[in-house]
Design a binder for these strands. Structure first.
Lengths: 204, 204
DNA sequence: TGTACATCAGTGAACGCGCGTTCACTGATGTAC
DNA sequence: TGTACATCAGTGAACGCGCGTTCACTGATGTAC
């Protein structure tokens, strides 16, 4: 209900969005509370009406990020087609799509140094993200005979690691190497090869 | 030859090591030039006798890191046993071992936001790191019939991404999830499954 | 071996800056009557 | 509809801090003669 509020009209969310833009532009560590306040058109002190400090602002960005992330992956899974395999692949694509479309959120979630336990809400939201990927992995691995089935947590950790690695190394402008291939292709082929290794895709 | 030098005796390297310790302790962004100077027992201004500023110090740490990294992986490759497969796996283990044993270097190289092109020496050293992993991948993929052979750059990018992802997500105290498995196991199994997907390991 | 000099690594004081945070305040909004 | 009051979001000035960087200097080391 607080669509347009008191003086500013929803300053809290305006600060979150300002933080997001700043984090996208300068990384999670280039982000400052003062600048976020300024770009929301407000004195730094005003921030303290809504957040206990800088860290809580970042944590809120990360929280919203995890919720969007979980929603996107959940949607991709639910609408990913008839088979566990297609649902799983759809979920994987949603991972990279999220990192691309929400770089500020992604950075706040995974590169800001914010502890997942800064905040019980944040811990819950982060657990939900993991659970969705893990569910997709578990459903898919049920296609395998039990004795060849990897633990779902390990399966999903592999996928998460490769996805995160692709994002960090090849979907940013910055470090490691210049992207030798489009990140989407890299991730898609990488996961494809991995799934073939599990016996979930035909050995062509 | 400059074992013990003028006043301090090799302040340059002492600063690099102080930076390393600080980066390990507080991350690449918590690192400050002043603190590095202090912990080397020297005034901040003294740093400017050896580096043009903060960024050049970090770049030097990253440079030394890339050299160690390339040496370790190169050694692991050369001594990795008789087959391309065992050499490749040895190289992969060296990756994680480096990240574990040299966390400060690893952070300076991949998490400090330093541009690989800050410095031609750095660019060269980084290229050498990539080349070694790529060579291991290329040699291994020659075991495959040409038409099933992935481009070596893609192969090695997959491996790099998974390795980096495991390091970032599961070999640090911080973010994503609490490690569900030891990072070494995670990486070893992940790469194993991937190689099986390529047909480089038997489909057991 | 001894003296005069040049070098240059490190000093110490100072700078301007933007940071996060605090505090007493002010003034627009919402509420009671 | 109109007035009196309470609320509380945002202000503005101030704080102490540590940062990176500069500068003229000093004093130990190395070199020439």
């Amino acid at each position: 209900m607080p669509k347009r509020g008191y003086h500013h009209g929803n300053l809290r969310q305006a600060l979150v969005e300002a933080a997001l833009t700043l984090i996208e532009a300068k990384g999670p560590t280039g982000f400052t509370l003062s600048e976020a306040a300024k770009s929301a058109g407000v004195t730094p002190a005003a921030v303290y009406r809504h957040f206990s400090g800088r860290d809580e602002l970042i944590a809120e960005v990360a929280l919203q990020g995890h919720r969007i992330f979980a929603d996107l992956m959940g949607f991709a899974y639910d609408n990913g087609g008839p088979s566990p395999l297609s649902a799983f692949e759809s979920t994987g694509r949603a991972y990279l799509a999220f990192a691309r479309k929400h770089p500020g959120h992604y950075m706040a979630m995974f590169e800001s140094g914010i502890s997942i336990n800064a905040n019980p809400e944040l811990a819950t939201a982060a657990a939900r993200s993991s659970a969705i990927l893990e569910r997709a992995a578990a459903a898919l691995s049920e296609q395998l005979p039990p004795e060849k089935r990897p633990p779902a947590a390990m399966f999903s950790a592999h996928i998460w690691a490769m996805s995160h690695g692709v994002v960090e190394l090849y979907a940013r402008g910055a470090p490691g190497a210049k992207a030798p291939f489009p990140p989407e292709d890299l991730l898609e082929t990488g996961i494809g090869i991995y799934l073939r290794g599990l016996g979930l895709l035909p050995q062509d």
